[in-house]
Amino acid sequence: MDWRQLWEIASAPDNIPIVGLIPLLIFYIYLAWKQAKANDELIAELETSPAMAKTHHRKSWPFRPGWQKEVHVWPFLLRMEFLAAIIVSAILMVWSITLSAPLEEPSNPNLTMNPAKAPWYFLGLQEMLVYFDPWIAGVVMPTLIIVGLMVIPYIDTNPLGSGYYTWKQRKFSIGTFLFGFLFLWVAMIIIGTFIRGPGWQWFWPGQTWDHNRLIYEVNRDLPDIFGITSNLAKAIFGAVVVGGYYLAGGFIAHALFRRYNPKDYQRLSLLQYSIMMFFLLTMVALPAKMLLRLLWHIKYVWITPWFNV
């Protein structure tokens, strides 16, 4: 166990935000979960007794009797904002006094940094470079993430859970978002920061970075395994596999979604349903491709003269 190596990574000034992000995320997930649980319990109670549902105020943190429904922004909101600004300023001051921003040697195109890492908030994409070609990891994926986020309000047709924390009323959408945000984004950033060392190789936390380590990984392409040699056959084979993934995966997702989310299934229009399926399957394709690589050393699935997937 090389504690120094571990400490060096964890205490690198530019890594501190990630070290801070983890407890922040845990805290806020707890805060959200606490409120979701209280609301879900209330919902369950109201669902069983319609009489109570008619008169209930329907909040887990209700008004006290005699309280007014509305309060003045001045001072009730403004003092909160002011307080928040003071606290943030104080944190920022202490952080800036105790920890200095990094400044390396002057830039030198002839001296490559190893590992050369993108800023931490893009490390998820850089990690994807291990499994995908740059045009996918660097261009297509960011585009899909942005477009995917943008379509969320238009494909989530569930009218429940608008304006309050809940889990039971929105299991599918919250589950999907948590999977994307925590596993495909935050976890990849953590791997990129704490695990990836020189040559972008995998070093367990506490393992010494060995700049001379070479790993001979023999990666194969999926067509090779099936003994396909001609270029045309490879291209067609790959298209069939990728198309097959979307068709078969789409069928499985359809079977599950229809059963477990019948109401959403009914509400979704064909366009909404196809868009949702496309993004869902593409999202699941990331860990799928990662598994192909990690378990069977498969590099490409689809090989064409112009691009490889």
């Binding site: 530019d14 400044l103 390396e104 002057p106 830039s107 940094m113 740059p134």
Partner: peptide
């Protein structure tokens, strides 16, 4: 800051633009 950190981060970042379809 024009130091090694920024230079290589931006080099890595913009290299992906080479691969834009």
């Amino acid at each position: 800051p024009d130091d090694q950190l920024g230079f290589w981060a931006v080099t890595v970042g913009t290299n992906m633009a080479r691969a834009t379809p």
